[in-house]
Design a protein around this nucleic acid. Structure first.
Length: 191
DNA sequence: TATTGGATCGCC
DNA sequence: GCGATCCAATAG
């Protein structure tokens, strides 16, 4: 069966053009979808995000546009993928208006579709640890540097859909950073 | 040009 | 707790 990638359930540009903290919070419960090279669709519910804005010392965009981070300054809804620690990728969704370096880091997913492909990519059968981390999420979904700059609003490879409403969203301090650690810009969904 | 350390993960 | 492994940012 062919699964539509132009569903009305897909999140539109207007969703991402809002304030980064709102987007980060409202992405909890949304569904990240990727179509892999064989046409398999992998889906997972976003259950953890972090917000990064231009005035934020912890953000890649803090020192302005560069060859690495330029996608953060593109139109809302684009996908910013970067390599971390030489071996993992992290996926972000660009927010707010063009030329503003802001994005939401996708930190964790609850796998819902295509789990067998995620298990293969992650080399584990343990569903609990398939995509519960920014690097693991990218590995499970097959997100690499090729997805950097892709528009989630139009792409047939990667997009975000409306999902479920979380029972609760907890706000915590962001992790893995050394600057601006006091703000509660990390969102964790409970379902 | 050289050095350092990072929005991580998995294994010890 | 530590090594893997790349590369952007910074210092010299």
């Amino acid at each position: 069966m062919e699964i539509s990638t132009t569903s009305t359930r897909r999140l539109k540009k207007e969703f991402f053009q809002r304030e980064t903290l709102k987007v980060a919070e409202n992405l909890i419960g949304s569904v990240l979808a990727v179509k892999d090279e064989k046409g398999n669709v992998l889906r997972g519910i976003i259950n953890e995000t972090e917000a990064y804005i231009e005035e934020d010392e912890a953000s890649h965009s803090f020192n302005g546009k560069s060859n690495r981070n330029y996608v953060m300054f593109e139109e809302a809804g684009h996908c910013y993928v970067y390599l971390i620690y030489g071996m993992y990728f992290c996926a972000n969704v660009v927010t707010e208006k063009e030329n503003r370096g802001s994005a939401v880091l996708l930190r964790s997913l609850i796998p819902i579709e295509g789990k067998e492909y995620m298990k293969y990519r992650r080399k584990t059968d343990n569903e609990k640890i398939l995509s519960n981390g920014p690097g693991k999420l990218c590995m499970a979904m097959g997100i690499t540097r090729e997805m950097n700059g892709v528009d989630l609003v139009n792409s047939g490879k990667i997009w975000i859909e409306e999902g479920v409403s979380p029972a609760k969203i907890k706000k915590k301090r962001r992790i893995g950073i050394s600057k601006n650690t006091e703000v509660d810009w990390r969102f964790l969904g409970e379902f």
